[in-house]
Amino acid sequence: MPMLEAQWLARMDYGIAWELQKKLIREIDREESSEALLLLEHTPTYTIGSDRHPEHLLYGKEELARRGISLYEIDRGGDITYHGPGQLVGYPLLYLDAVGLDLHAYLRNLEEVIIKLLADFGISGGRKPEYTGVWVGDSKIAAIGVKFNKARTRRGFVTSHGFALNVKKNVEQEGFQGIIPCGITEFGVTSLETLTGLEWQVEDIGRRILPYFAEVFGYAVPTVIESLSS
């Protein structure tokens, strides 16, 4: 089985993580680095993807500054979402060969990883056909937004961006009230702690997701998450 390098980056500013993704994409394309899954938390941040709707951001610049929330317009698909402490963010940086390439299936596979993880907690996660992401009933627990970067040295793509799984209860209140998440007004958000009634550490959930990611994408299970920052 192919190997995957899993890295736990702890809590990191969004801009730093974005630049790290770009660096690793170039290295993976040139076969100078292994394919990787970056797992981390972000400081409070709103990101707006290529499907831009400025009206879905409810805070002005002064309110963002007062609350200490950063704002980035980025190159993934999708609309606006929130990242912050208490949320497990995963950035798979994988090479997808052009032969038999199915980009839609890649998104469904990311959802499947999270659905399998939730089942481990006795939670029935699912999909809504009109939306990307993972849902429990009518509440969204994980957002997904990706970019397919055309490889320069090989025929195919290197993936970037990825998924954001709400782990701790505080995520529901601390950021989502300032946006219309992904432009969806009729449904809410939830978290692993809300659904289980138990407390969880984000890094522990990052470790628990690894075997499901390896199973769905066909990698050997990484045994160690490298702690690159504290």
Rank of each mutant, 00 (worst) to 15 (best):
A98V: 15
L57Y: 09
A36N: 04
I28D: 04
V99I: 14
T43R: 13
Y46P: 08
S70C: 09
G84W: 04
D75W: 03
Y95G: 11
S70R: 12
T81A: 07
D97C: 13
S70D: 15
H53E: 15
R52D: 14
H56K: 09
S33G: 12
G90Q: 02
L96M: 07
G78V: 06
S50T: 12
L37T: 03
I80V: 11
Y72N: 07
E55G: 13
E32L: 12
E32T: 10
R26S: 12
E63R: 15
L40N: 02
H53M: 13
R76F: 05
H83S: 02
L101T: 15
A105W: 12
G78M: 09
D51W: 11
E35P: 01
L40A: 03
I48Y: 05
G49Y: 02
S70T: 11
L57P: 02
Y106D: 14
T47Q: 03
R66L: 14
A98E: 15
A105K: 10
G77K: 04
G100Y: 02
L107T: 09
L38R: 01
H42Q: 05
L38E: 04
L103P: 05
L93P: 00
G86D: 05
I80G: 08
L38G: 08
I28T: 05
P44A: 02
L96D: 08
Q87F: 02
L88I: 00
L96C: 04
G84M: 02
D75R: 03
S70E: 14
E55V: 10
E41W: 00
E63D: 15
H83C: 06
L93F: 06
E35Q: 04
D29V: 11
T43M: 08
G90D: 00
D102L: 04
T81S: 03
L107H: 04
L88N: 03
P54M: 12
D102P: 10
I74V: 12
E31K: 08
L57A: 10
R66T: 14
P85M: 00
G77E: 05
G78W: 05
H42R: 03
L57F: 10
H53N: 13
R67S: 09
I28W: 01
P92M: 03
G86H: 05
G49S: 08
T81N: 02
L37M: 00
P92V: 07
D29C: 12
S70W: 06
G100I: 12
H53G: 10
S33Y: 06
R108N: 07
L39V: 04
P54L: 12
R108V: 15
T81F: 03
V99R: 06
L64Y: 06
S33Q: 04
Y82G: 06
R66Q: 15
G84C: 00
K61N: 15
A65F: 13
I80E: 12
G86Y: 00
E73K: 03
Y95A: 10
L96E: 01
L101E: 14
E55L: 11
I28K: 00
E63P: 11
A36S: 11
E73M: 10
S34G: 03
I74M: 07
G77L: 02
